[in-house]
Design a protein around this nucleic acid. Sequence first.
DNA 1: CATGAATGAGACTTCATTCAT
DNA 2: TATGAATGAAGTCTCATTCAT
Lengths: 216, 216, 216, 216
Amino acid sequence: MAKKVASGQRLARPSDARSLRKRRRPGDKRDRILDAAVRVFATNGFHATRVSDVAKAAGVADGTIYLYFRSKEDVLISLFEDRVESLLAYMKSELPKLQTAPERLRAVISMQLGLLEGEREMAEIITVIIRQSTQLLKELAAPKFIAYLDAIARIVSAGQAAGDFRTDISPHVAARAIFGALDGITITWALGSAERGALARAATQLADVLLRGLAP
Amino acid sequence: MAKKVASGQRLARPSDARSLRKRRRPGDKRDRILDAAVRVFATNGFHATRVSDVAKAAGVADGTIYLYFRSKEDVLISLFEDRVESLLAYMKSELPKLQTAPERLRAVISMQLGLLEGEREMAEIITVIIRQSTQLLKELAAPKFIAYLDAIARIVSAGQAAGDFRTDISPHVAARAIFGALDGITITWALGSAERGALARAATQLADVLLRGLAP
Amino acid sequence: MAKKVASGQRLARPSDARSLRKRRRPGDKRDRILDAAVRVFATNGFHATRVSDVAKAAGVADGTIYLYFRSKEDVLISLFEDRVESLLAYMKSELPKLQTAPERLRAVISMQLGLLEGEREMAEIITVIIRQSTQLLKELAAPKFIAYLDAIARIVSAGQAAGDFRTDISPHVAARAIFGALDGITITWALGSAERGALARAATQLADVLLRGLAP
Amino acid sequence: MAKKVASGQRLARPSDARSLRKRRRPGDKRDRILDAAVRVFATNGFHATRVSDVAKAAGVADGTIYLYFRSKEDVLISLFEDRVESLLAYMKSELPKLQTAPERLRAVISMQLGLLEGEREMAEIITVIIRQSTQLLKELAAPKFIAYLDAIARIVSAGQAAGDFRTDISPHVAARAIFGALDGITITWALGSAERGALARAATQLADVLLRGLAP
DNA sequence: CATGAATGAGACTTCATTCAT
DNA sequence: TATGAATGAAGTCTCATTCAT
């Protein structure tokens, strides 16, 4: 038996050094698996997806997945961490270039919807994950999510200090409402009813409503 | 998963015919099961919940559940239909009593958050369900959800016609944003970070922002 | 997922109260499984035996095994505990009826070989188990085994005190040698080369050698 | 289990042809692998040991093992054959130097226990292997084992012919009892309860008992 | 109607073995 | 020869569903 679970640290990637060389795709096999996972998880949902579905979509054998991830759930977690991480990184590098809080808020709105428009599947996954209830997921996903909300809350807070936003609104409530509004727009879109480009228009309208609503 | 009987129509509800009889609750077994299901689904998530968990929580035998529902998924669907149905019914009967669109919108906001505050568990389920992705669920849940959004959109639309709301915003976008904002506030609360009563304050603030944002 | 392992205590047996009633065998289903397990484990070895083999041999479905045992290993452990327990019980009730240590030693020899002759398969399992190396098994099996050896050692010790056995031999060494000698005879027999009745003759010869060897 | 190639003959040993070359040990890779295998098999048991564990312990790549052995089981078999072979060879060369059967029997006893004391791990493996039950192993291991027992039986038989041993005991039964007694002492020791040097004392005592028991 | 023991399909995961480098 | 990433067969175990009582 000896289920020697090498628990603790993330799995090492076999041969980090020989990167892109062979067939099919430029990316590493780990990335191929993650890319495939986004697709199938989004299409069928996490629970309805079998590991073998991910493997097939990635063009690898079932067992290969376990060379890069500890479990099916670990694939989902990695997905979440990778993507939200990059969203946060993007915010950290781009937002400071803008001067005022309203400008930044508009940017966040476009960004979140833009991310989703580009990766509708990832969008579904991100918003679903934080509602999935295994304790493990909650523990891992929640902090990232909170970090994202806090980043928005800080923009609101800064705007209030600069006199750009009314001060009778809690920055945290505002942040959640903003995130939720974006998410609400996304989800209906993800459910299938919206045509291409609709998100961009929605983003503008939403920004208009929120900024006017937040004006002092 | 085992033995998915591809049967067809909804089951008749044995409870319809001989209402309240036993002890415990006014409703009959079917209701006991649904009540139990809300609790355990919300606590553990749909997939992590076993039929036997629901049975135990409802105080019935595993097999009994199959006298009232065709499958575990059917329990979830019934739950969703019953509750959203009653929410829609409530909207249909109460909103007309209010005169203006802004008033009605405030009412919807309080109602949605109020529903959630009263039934946090049901709240989690409703928002999670529409993101659970078996095709069956999507097909069944989406229409109800859309109906709810449409009800909100009609309020916005009426408000625009009455000159209470700006007209450069799509009622549908507005509806989705409103729903999402509410949901966004709810979910953080559901994730555990907010104290009791916070939802009420958040509702007021949110209504302020949205109404001012939507003002002509 | 929710692998709710009800760890800790032994599993309850479904409906202890309705014992023997229906088809196939008098014994309980748990016993049917244990009986089948002895056979297939002995024939194929523990690791080479699939749970489904045990199930098939017991005439139950695979899943049924998990209603009575926590795992495949738990079946083996239960087997071991049940049988050695009964051997120890037998010793405790029968040996006191004999007067002298030599008589008792002869009885033990006949008993151990008799048990094996009657249950060749169980014999293989008992002797194999204490050499299998999962920590769990060692921890569970060793104490029972030691208890058995100690029972033999006490006979030797008593014999020395009564002047029936030489005193320059450690009772514990003697016990182990006696057990081993019996086991050695058994194993060759189990390997297939001995005809029926050979064990009885071997028992007599062995007793002769050992008793003379141990004489003062 | 995967991919059991039903191939036929033993592999040639690459090491035969170009003996010691690299660092670490006098023997070549094949021997390094066998040495490593003794250690890990004894520590974790055969089934709980992964080929990669053996590889890691031997300091070679997983695939390398298959250059020297046809399968994991073949490693075990080779181990067994090598070691028992050398034990038999030792008996064949050393025993004839002794004059009487009793002397030889004492030598065998010391030898078997001595072998074990020197290589406790190998001891565990030898005694466990003959009880592991894949048919293949039984077929391969049993003959060697029988050969060893026969060698002991011949000593007894010769002793009977020379008038050193009583003749009412079957030499084969005696051989098995002797082997088993030794094994019984070893196993308790292997289970961890005895201190160093205990085996030597046990050997003397055992020899005393057996020789007196076998005396005419 | 109710029960709950039994069923068995199917999921996740492991790991012996292969083979391109 | 040596490597070790990749493979995929197969096993253990879970749990939705059934059905005899």
